[in-house]
């Protein structure tokens, strides 16, 4: 099964190509430019450089969020457009779960976190070390204080992952003390190879998502709706 994977949910714009247990190519840009301009050219050149005709693709994995609303939509719309045009199946992958895959071999708490603005982060907590990641705290938007309180409820080392760890270090490191660990940078970035890897697992366990049903995981209502009085 030859799959294409896409992740545009954070500042990183990344695409990967591979089969289960085999990564053929991964292109990644972390240049803080709009994903809209870079994503299709990245896909086109990666396939060209890999000598893979678009019609040989058998499925598409895409990171569906949480993350930047606009970034999520660019990735999901592109994945849906490709899957639609090529008539191939789609798999949606949660951005945080994909990132946690980077530390899956460690018998520790894995805490991928992304800036969610308005003094919140998008975070989840998984337990690694076994053959499958165990979900301890599902993906949610919460304050760093609240995240810290949650992490104190569990024992063991905590490995944090994400593209902006220095911004969260001050709040989490003192709280967790010697339990606090940071995943080193290249592995701490959201990247399409993690989405690919996680995508194959979902594919095996749950099968594809119907084209129309592959929707983003925003985790937040639009601002205007949040301000609306309860009805």
């Amino acid at each position: 099964m030859l799959f294409l994977a896409i992740d545009t949910t954070t500042a990183v714009c990344s695409v990967a190509l591979g089969r289960e247990g085999e990564l053929l190519a991964e292109y990644l840009l972390n240049i803080k430019k709009t994903h809209s301009q870079r994503l299709m050219p990245l896909i086109i050149s990666m396939l060209r450089d890999s000598d893979v005709d678009r019609h040989r693709l058998e499925g598409i994995c895409v990171a569906v969020g949480p993350g930047s609303f606009t970034g999520i939509r660019i990735g999901v719309a592109t994945a849906r457009g490709l899957a639609h045009g090529l008539s191939i199946p789609l798999v949606g992958v949660n951005t945080l779960e994909a990132l946690a895959g980077a530390g899956a071999c460690y018998p520790a708490l894995l805490c991928p976190l992304l800036d969610a603005r308005r003094s919140q982060v998008y975070a989840a907590v998984y337990r690694g070390g076994a053959s499958v990641l165990e979900t301890v705290e599902p993906p949610q938007a919460l304050s760093l204080d609240e995240l810290g309180r949650r992490l104190l409820l569990y024992s063991g080392e905590v490995i944090v992952l994400g593209d902006n760890l220095p911004a969260f270090r001050e709040a989490l490191a003192p709280l967790l003390g010697r339990r606090y660990r940071e995943m080193p940078l290249p592995s701490a970035l959201n990247r399409a190879s993690y989405v690919l890897q996680r995508g194959f697992v979902i594919w095996r366990e749950e099968g594809p998502v119907p084209l129309y049903a592959l929707n983003p995981l925003y985790l937040r209502l639009p601002e205007a709706q949040r301000r609306l009085p309860e009805q």
């Binding site: 994503l39 299709m40 609303f69 719309a77 592109t78 045009g85």
Partner: peptide
């Protein structure tokens, strides 16, 4: 609206590439 335009542009680019 840029957010709306991006949905159309992203979809159309992907579809045009897929269909060649």
């Amino acid at each position: 609206l840029v957010g709306s335009l991006l949905v159309g542009v992203s979809t159309a680019k992907a579809l045009a590439y897929a269909l060649d």
